[in-house]
């Protein structure tokens, strides 16, 4: 799905937990997520901290979208 949306002409960042699969299916911009049932959250954290964590991941995703890549790239930090 990632690939097909990108093929239509839009940059896509794939936020996912299992990044190797994302590599295999062919996403170009990849941001690692927290865990499969809660990719952008962590239920064990207090509400505010969890939101801060989510914001960090979203910011990383936006950074990926504003970064030129020549091939598949995982944005770790």
């Amino acid at each position: 799905m990632v690939k097909e949306i990108e093929r239509s002409g839009l940059p896509v960042v794939h936020v996912c937990t299992v990044t190797p699969i994302s590599m295999t299916v062919g996403a170009n911009r990849i941001v690692p997520a927290i865990a499969i049932p809660h990719p952008l959250g962590n239920p064990s954290l207090p509400k505010e901290e969890e939101k801060a964590l989510r914001r960090k991941i979203v910011e990383k995703a936006l950074k990926a979208l504003t970064t030129e890549v020549t091939g598949q790239t995982v944005f770790k930090d």
Binding site: L10, P11, V13, T17, A33, P39, V58, L62
Partner: peptide, 9 residues
């Protein structure tokens, strides 16, 4: 739309 954030579980 200019860009997409796609999230997967």
């Amino acid at each position: 739309v200019n860009a997409v954030i796609l999230t997967s579980t």
